[in-house]
Amino acid sequence: MSARNRPLSPHLQVYRPQMTSILSITHRLTGVALALGAILLVYWLAAAASGAEVFEDARGLIGSWIGRLALFGWTLALFYHLCNGIRHLFWDAGHGYALPDAERSGWAVLAATVVLTLAAWIAGYAMRGGV
């Protein structure tokens, strides 16, 4: 095999971003963000195990505008990583590699992410009448 015909890693300075490549790096970014956000999840669970006062502090922090913004971002990242992860599992099984298929499934992931995130927050607020 000649070196010229081998596939190359993207040379980022001269690489034209495509929808599929942006979704790919977003999968990695959301994965890292979810791992960081999981620290807050453990804090929330540990607070519930540590007594009413500690839990009220955690509830106040999560209920503040910055807490709610972080939680919104975390759920957005969660639904994206979930939907795109399922897309990856189909690739692992050998399906959907053709470029039009990869682009179509990419748009489906984006649409599902927005729909699921909005549905979750609308349902959450409807059930509790606000945080």
Binding site: A48, A52, F55, E56, R59, G63, T75, L78, F79, L82, G85, I86, L89, L116, A120, W121, A123, G124, Y125, M127, R128, G130, V131
Partner: peptide, 22 residues
């Protein structure tokens, strides 16, 4: 694969627990 159903369950739980008291 294990996290697909677990995440759906957890997200639904989170929705029902928004603003939950102690």
């Amino acid at each position: 694969i294990a996290l697909v159903p677990l995440t759906i369950w957890f997200a639904a739980s989170l929705v029902s627990l928004i603003g939950a008291d102690y």
